[in-house]
């Protein structure tokens, strides 16, 4: 709209609800968290909060005031809250993500292969996406009961008692994350692959390229932006990993605390070490802001710029954002 002078105010008016709510429920809490991260601030509850939640007696707030970067240096120590849980989170993410991206690339290239002509694609996609809509906590509890000692899967695999072993527990969490996300990633990559000009494939066939060559020389280079996008959004999602490791490992993140993730520290520390947990939250914020910045750079020319700078020239191919939803 080039002549919208008298209408401009409506733009601002319609933005009010978003920004009021954002201000109250996100910005102010973020700033408060930032403030807490510089305080020597501990809450001890009147009685130990039970498993059912809910503290018993009155809270005692011990606030010794400003303490500079002490919380940050504490959580960043080699055995600090952030260091340990960041390491745990990264490993858990990798264990799920590596098989996920490999399988998804393979499936997407099969589904979009013009010569392979796979049938029942709708059925396969429906089944593969199903675990993504299932409650993550239910899926995790289900896997917990299947892999626990003498559980169904434990029996099937010959009693490895995986949940009590560091590597085994990581594999179970990785498996759940893999099942939840490979369908989603496959669909995303398929959309990218279907956007590739078919004449490129035809030309490569005429030139006698085999499927492997086509995949590495044509498909991969052309879907690089969406691959990068999938990678970074999955990292941001991974940073927020909570339900799965928490339901498997409980508050202690058993075995040996390797299932303690960044976000589970926030949940556990909400009524105790506020200062330290706030510092941890701010560090999560910084890491995700960096990742988010990379995402925006990746989408940049495709979405942000073209949408409002060169509007109406041509419809740009947009990178899909559906996965940013958790």
């Amino acid at each position: 709209m080039k002549k919208g002078i008298s209408y401009a105010k409506w733009g601002y008016i319609f933005l009010i609800p978003f920004f009021v709510v954002y201000f109250i429920f996100s910005l102010v809490p973020m700033l408060e968290t930032f403030g807490y991260s510089f305080l020597d601030y501990v809450v001890s509850q009147g009685s130990v909060s039970s498993i059912r939640g809910g503290g018993g007696g009155a809270d005692t707030i011990i606030n010794h005031g400003f303490c500079g970067f002490k919380n940050y240096s504490d959580v960043l120590k080699s055995d600090g809250l952030f260091t340990l849980s960041f390491k745990n989170t990264t490993i858990l993410w990798l264990v799920g993500f590596i098989p996920q991206i490999v399988v998804s690339l393979l499936l997407a290239s099969w589904f979009t292969d013009i010569r392979l002509k796979l049938k029942a694609q709708g059925f396969f996609k429906t089944v593969m996406y199903l675990p993504n809509v299932i409650m993550a906590s239910a899926l995790s509890l289900l896997f917990y009961s299947l892999f626990i000692k003498n559980g169904a899967m434990d029996t099937m695999l010959g009693h490895p008692d995986m949940l009590n072993k560091v590597g085994g527990a990581r594999m179970v969490v990785g498996l759940i994350n893999f099942l939840m996300w490979y369908g989603n990633t496959t669909i995303m990559l398929m959309a990218a692959m279907m956007g590739i000009d078919t004449s490129l494939y035809e030309a490569s066939q005429i030139d006698g390229a085999n499927p492997t060559q086509v995949f590495w020389q044509i498909t991969i280079p052309l879907i690089k932006p969406i691959l990068a996008y999938v990678l970074v959004t999955s990292m941001i999602g991974g940073l927020q990993m909570y339900d799965v490791p928490y339901l498997i490992g409980g508050t202690t993140g058993n075995p040996a605390g390797v299932l303690k993730t960044l976000v589970s520290q926030i949940q556990l520390g909400k009524n105790s070490s506020i200062g330290a947990v706030s510092a941890l939250s701010i560090l999560i914020f910084i890491v995700s802001a960096i990742l988010g910045f990379i995402t925006l750079k990746v989408m940049d020319d495709k979405s942000v710029k073209s949408m409002y700078d060169v509007k109406k020239k041509k419809q740009p191919k947009k990178i899909n954002m559906a996965t940013s939803r958790k």
Binding site: P29, M30, L239, I266, I284, A289, G292
Partner: peptide, 14 residues
């Protein structure tokens, strides 16, 4: 940009 920031990061303040 806001979309990229996990809500958990501000949860303690909230």
């Amino acid at each position: 940009i806001v979309m990229m920031v996990p809500t958990q990061a501000s949860a303690i303040g909230l």
